[in-house]
Amino acid sequence: MQRTAVAGKREKGDTHITLSTRCGANEIVITSPVLDLFGPQIRTAVEQTLQQLQISGVLILVEDNQALDCVTQARLRCAVQRLQRGVEA
């Protein structure tokens, strides 16, 4: 059964992360008003954290609103924790 967790907000300077379990490899989908300027950094930040936490089998939707990389990573960490704790989205 698919589980989902969210963290963060869609406000300026923040990012809203939605994690859902799935079969197969991780997939990262990013939307952002600054995708052309910071897209690669956002992706790298997400990948680094997933690797650190050794997470696999998730779909990560990143709805960025100009968050710094460490904010993205903190929100992702929170979403992972919530997913693992079984906190309802």
Binding site: F38, G39, Q41, L68
Partner: peptide
């Protein structure tokens, strides 16, 4: 240092 260096068009 705060924002990161952007990729310029």
């Amino acid at each position: 240092m705060l924002t990161g260096r952007p990729h310029f068009p």
